[in-house]
Design a binder for these strands. Structure first.
Lengths: 199, 199
DNA sequence: CCTACCGATCGGTAGG
DNA sequence: CCTACCGATCGGTAGG
């Protein structure tokens, strides 16, 4: 344990996440990636078997992070508005803490081969289902408005938490918790002023 | 006017939008594109000068559509909540009516050469500014909540209207107007039930 | 992990 | 708009 360096394979995945997110999967060559790690192109294949393996692993790791963050919430007994707030926080935290792989996840999953592609599609459905269940629970409880369209409400929430990958800047003045609290306040309470002041 | 076919150059741009959005810019070869149009790879260069020219034109056309939709709203005198509703409708309509080029716009602009890249970055700032002004106006008028953080509110609205490119399906049961009305209702009125019913 | 290389494919051009 | 081609670069491999 005196060696503080990450295993070479993890370094490769980190570099790949960064380069794929900046330039895109197809525009990043294996020689670009090797150069970023200070080695020759062919040397990468001592650690990995193919370029697509890297993409698959990056996307899988991102999926797993979302899963771990959200699905532990499923069982918890909590009013739905509070649960929605917590889900948004966890979701945004995953995006914010993994900006590179989240960007790869949102942009490059279409380039996966059919099996991996289908897995991602299926996974996205489970995330949709998670939010729809949560909102349905809220409507049934009476904490959320009775006239909500469940599907559209889930899209709206997912828009807010996913789109963060385009504008969030780690290390800035906003922590993931701040973003989530503000978004949840606005979504739950609405943007319109309480008094319908008409001059 | 007896010829109903589009000019060849427009056909090329349409095919390019579709292929770039499905497979990505770098994963689409000029031979793929030519094949989609029933011609040989080299023949494309009778109509265009380079692959990047196609990307630039697709991105520029998309920007122009957003501009035309939104900036005509700027001058209109209208309560800010209503103006926000109308802006969301127009924004979503541009996305919905141009799913391919909107997808290319959101995913592939990073692959532009420095000058075109900088132009897109600058353009995005003007869209941000448009929404921030609109929200500021609403706060000053009293139609929107006084405690809103302008920047975060603009991000939330932009999330909702932009993320539609990932899930909207033209020809489905939801027209752009429906999406915009539902999103605006939820955003303005909030998701929480009016009566704080606590059993 | 490097050197040297493979066949395939890339964007683009010349000449017709 | 086609044929035939250019140099460059791609992902990946063999042998050390």
């Amino acid at each position: 344990m005196t060696d503080t360096a990450k295993p070479r394979r993890e370094q490769i995945l980190d570099s790949a996440s960064r380069l794929f997110s900046e330039r895109g999967y197809h525009a990043t060559s294996m020689r670009d990636l090797a150069g970023d790690l200070g080695m020759q192109g062919g040397s990468l294949y001592a650690h990995i078997s193919s370029k697509e393996e890297l993409l698959i692993e990056i996307v899988n790791q991102a999926s797993r992070q979302f899963d771990e963050a959200l699905f532990t919430l499923r069982a918890e007994a909590m009013p739905a508005d509070q649960k929605l707030r917590e889900a948004m926080y966890r979701h945004i935290r995953v995006v914010a803490d993994n900006m590179d792989s989240a960007t790869v996840f949102f942009h490059e999953w279409k380039h996966l081969s059919p099996e991996a592609y289908a897995r991602v599609t299926g996974w996205r459905d489970t995330i949709d289902a998670f939010y729809r269940e949560l909102i349905t629970q809220g409507v049934q409880e009476g904490t959320l408005r009775a006239d909500l369209d469940i599907k559209m409400t889930a899209y709206l929430v997912l828009s807010a938490v996913n789109w963060a990958y385009t504008w969030y800047r780690p290390g800035g003045s906003l922590a993931p918790r701040d973003v989530a609290e503000q978004f949840a306040d606005m979504l739950l309470g609405g943007l319109r002023a309480p008094t319908g002041a008409q001059p």
